[in-house]
Structures are given as structure tokens and as C-alpha cells.
């Protein structure tokens, strides 16, 4: 949007950046007006709140305001590092997100490719609609269903117990079941929706490529490997990077709805810990310090993923 047309650029090449920007604004005022709300959104909702991070250095009391609360320095950070559950929340955050990435990320891609191979168009459309519907159900409802189905007399419990022959008991009272159930639930809810963008990428592929492959005698499998996947790989990479950048923040509301003290061992992640400690126990500053940790990890992951991607295959966010 900021790039001016070729001629304007060459003419203004020697001017300072400010001058060029000013000229550009003058020649395309509407474009700049259009971007204003976006900038405003990010400033108001994403940059301004960062100021709140300073309360992690204070013993914050809402009615006193930030600067009148007692200054405690890095105490909240050191408290978190010496917290008995420090390693657990870190471990769970990373493990759950890695599982989501490992299983949740490829699933919609495979689904989109499979569906793309389906010849019956009506069946394809029908399947697509059916699979993306769960995305529109509120996570409160989804988690409520999940808790019911996994209760002592629930459907999922009965199925699992019939297969394994165990005595039926609430699945959400065993920490070992939480992560698989959670990951499966998230995949089930989102894969249809997530696959839409791959459908779009797939429909953009040049049919001539497939025709050429047909003439060369490639079978379906070969066509998928050599045309479809390379064709949508830029989309995959970008989404992967974005996904990694969001890793630590994804879906903690669902964890809050599902977990209970019995399974904190495997279910408690940094964000849920922040919620419990910060809001439920009035420890706003401590929670901010913990949340800050979360953001630092997030940021590092994004940087690493982007750098690797740029080195390996030239596709990156910047």
C-alpha cells in the first residue's frame, strides 16, 4: 500500500523518506485514510495496553492507580520463578501447543487435499459445510458437551471403556486423558474452518499443470505430491508462522472451561494460571509478571520460526 507507482518512486528517489511519504500521501490520500482505523485499532488495543505491563513492578491496587502503588521491583518475577508450579505451567503450555501444532496443523491441509480429490461436487460441498459448522458453536457449549460426554456415564467414556475394558469413570478426572481429549476436541471444532483457506489456495492452482501431468502419465498420488502440495506450500508456511506466533495464547478459554484441580497437573497452562492467581486472588501484579513471561516466549518463538523459514525456503513474514 505504501509503495508508490514506479514513476513517482524514481522521481522521488533522492528525496528524504519524510518528503516521499508526504508526496505519496498527497497523491493517494484515500489509501491513507483507509489504513487509519487499522493503525488506531492496533495502537488502542495492542500497544497502549502494553503500558499496563509496568504494574508487574508494583504491588498494584486498582483504586490507588499504578504510580501510587508500592514499588516492588522484580519481586513478582522472582516469585514466579520460585513458584512450585513454574515448571509445570511452562511444560504444559509448551507441550499442549506442540501437540496442537503437530496434529492440529496438518489435519486441515490433509482434509482439504482429500476433499479436493473428491469428484462428486455436491458431496464435497456438503462435507465442507458440515465440517465447518462446529466453528460457529460457542466454546462454552462445546466444552459443556465435552464435559457431559466424558462424564462417568458419557458417550465418549462408554466408547473408550468398551474398547479398553476399564471401569467407567469421569475422563476429566484423570490427568493423562486431558491433553489428547483437548487436542481432539480443538481439531474437531476447527479443522473444517481452517481448511477453507487451503481450498482457496487449491482452487488457484493452474489446471494446465494437472493436464500436463496427466499427459506425462502421473497418477493421483504423484499429482498430489508434485503439484498440489508445492502449489499451496507458501500458504502453508505463512499460516505455520502465524500459528507459531500465536502458540502460547491459543484457546486457553477452553482449558478454563474444561479443567479441574484433579488435572491441573496436565492442563494448567500459563494463561489459566494468570487467570486463577491474578483475578481470583487479587494478585494483579503477579499475574502481569507471569503474563509477560508468556508474551516473551511467544515473541521468541515467532522470531525463531520466521528466521528458520526465511533461511530454508525464502517464505517469511518479513
Amino acid at each position: 500500500m505504501k509503495k508508490a507507482p514506479g514513476t513517482a518512486l524514481s522521481r522521488a528517489k533522492n528525496d528524504s523518506y519524510r518528503k516521499r511519504l508526504f508526496k505519496n500521501i498527497k497523491s493517494h490520500p484515500l489509501l491513507y485514510v483507509m489504513i487509519l482505523p487499522v493503525i488506531a485499532y492496533f495502537v488502542v488495543y495492542h500497544y497502549y495496553p502494553m503500558y499496563g505491563l509496568v504494574i508487574s513492578l508494583f504491588n498494584y491496587v486498582p483504586t490507588k492507580g499504578i504510580w501510587k502503588s508500592d514499588f516492588v521491583g522484580l519481586k513478582n518475577f522472582s516469585d514466579f520463578l520460585s513458584d512450585p508450579y513454574f515448571f509445570r505451567t511452562m511444560r504444559n503450555t509448551i507441550v499442549i501447543n506442540l501437540q496442537m501444532l503437530l496434529f492440529g496443523f496438518p489435519f486441515p491441509i490433509i482434509f482439504a487435499i482429500l476433499l479436493n480429490e473428491l469428484a462428486a461436487i455436491r458431496l464435497r460441498r456438503f462435507t465442507q459445510t458440515v465440517t465447518y459448522m462446529p466453528h460457529f458453536i460457542s466454546s462454552v457449549v462445546i466444552c459443556g458437551l465435552m464435559l457431559n460426554f466424558s462424564g462417568t456415564n458419557g458417550v465418549i467414556t462408554s466408547i473408550i471403556c468398551n474398547i479398553t475394558g476399564q471401569e467407567a469413570s469421569n475422563l476429566f478426572s484423570h490427568s493423562d486423558y486431558f491433553q489428547p481429549l483437548y487436542v481432539l476436541m480443538c481439531i474437531w471444532q476447527e479443522f473444517g474452518w481452517d481448511s477453507i483457506i487451503y481450498f482457496a489456495a487449491l482452487s488457484g492452482l493452474d489446471p494446465a499443470l494437472y493436464e500436463a501431468a496427466d499427459i506425462d502419465g502421473a497418477n493421483r498420488w504423484k499429482k498430489i505430491i508434485h503439484i498440489t502440495i508445492p502449489g499451496i506450500s507458501p500458504t502453508i508456511i505463512i499460516l505455520l508462522i502465524l500459528r507459531i506466533g500465536n502458540m502460547m495464547t491459543l484457546g486457553w478459554d477452553k482449558i478454563i472451561l474444561l479443567y479441574n484441580p484433579m488435572i491441573y497437573e496436565k492442563a494448567d497452562v500459563i494463561s489459566t494460571y494468570v487467570y486463577r492467581i491474578g483475578l481470583l486472588n487479587f494478585q494483579y501484579s503477579f499475574a502481569t509478571a507471569v503474563g509477560f513471561f508468556n508474551s516473551v516466549i511467544n515473541f521468541t518463538l515467532l522470531m525463531v520460526a520466521n528466521t528458520i523459514s526465511r533461511k530454508v525456503n525464502d517464505t517469511s513474514l518479513w
Binding site: S173, H174, M262, Y264, E265, R276, Q283
Partner: peptide, 21 residues
């Protein structure tokens, strides 16, 4: 502050002891 820390640590432990985890 102490009570928060204690219950935060021990509440779930107690349940885990009870259910043999």
C-alpha cells in the same frame, strides 16, 4: 498472600492424594 499460595499449591494435591494419582 500466604493462604493464597498454600491453597494454590495444596488444593489440587489433596484431590490427587485422594484419588490415588
Amino acid at each position: 498472600d500466604i493462604k493464597t499460595k498454600l491453597s494454590n499449591y495444596s488444593d489440587e494435591k489433596v484431590y490427587r492424594f485422594i484419588f490415588g494419582e
